[in-house]
């Protein structure tokens, strides 16, 4: 036996799971728009920021609902979200260095 999370499992309802899936599908369409999937044009800083923000929302939905992190204590939820935000900010920061011409190859 483990603690209460393990014994009760506290699983999301089917409705919550389907709503999360619907949100993920809508966010994926958002990714296609922000990422200009049918175009070769550069994204620019603003669309890149939107694209990564949408990616954060998708990853967070998967963590919270599919992986059921919503049943875990706040420090775990904040910790995983913090790592996610950090990773996406690093990616955005590096991209911005190139896009603004601060870094030249």
């Amino acid at each position: 036996m483990k603690d209460s999370i393990h014994s009760s499992h506290n699983l999301p309802s089917r409705r919550t799971l389907v709503m999360a899936w619907a949100l993920l599908m809508v966010l994926t369409i958002g990714t296609m728009i922000a990422g200009k999937v049918t175009s070769a044009a550069s994204l620019g800083l603003i669309w890149t920021a939107i694209l990564l923000a949408i990616s954060w929302a998708k990853a967070r939905t998967i963590l919270q609902v599919y992986l059921n992190l919503r049943a875990a204590p706040r420090h775990w939820r904040s910790g995983f979200n913090g790592v996610l935000v950090f990773l996406l900010l690093v990616i955005f920061g590096l991209y911005a260095l190139g896009a603004t011409g601060i870094v030249h190859h």
């Binding site: 922000a34 999937v37 694209l51 990853a59 599919y66």
Partner: peptide, 21 residues
């Protein structure tokens, strides 16, 4: 949970590798 982890990685991999430009 393993399957969702694969999902989680992909939703970051796709924009970074395919879309960021």
């Amino acid at each position: 949970a393993f399957w969702h982890m694969v999902d989680l990685i992909w939703v970051i991999l796709f924009p970074v590798v395919y879309l960021l430009r």
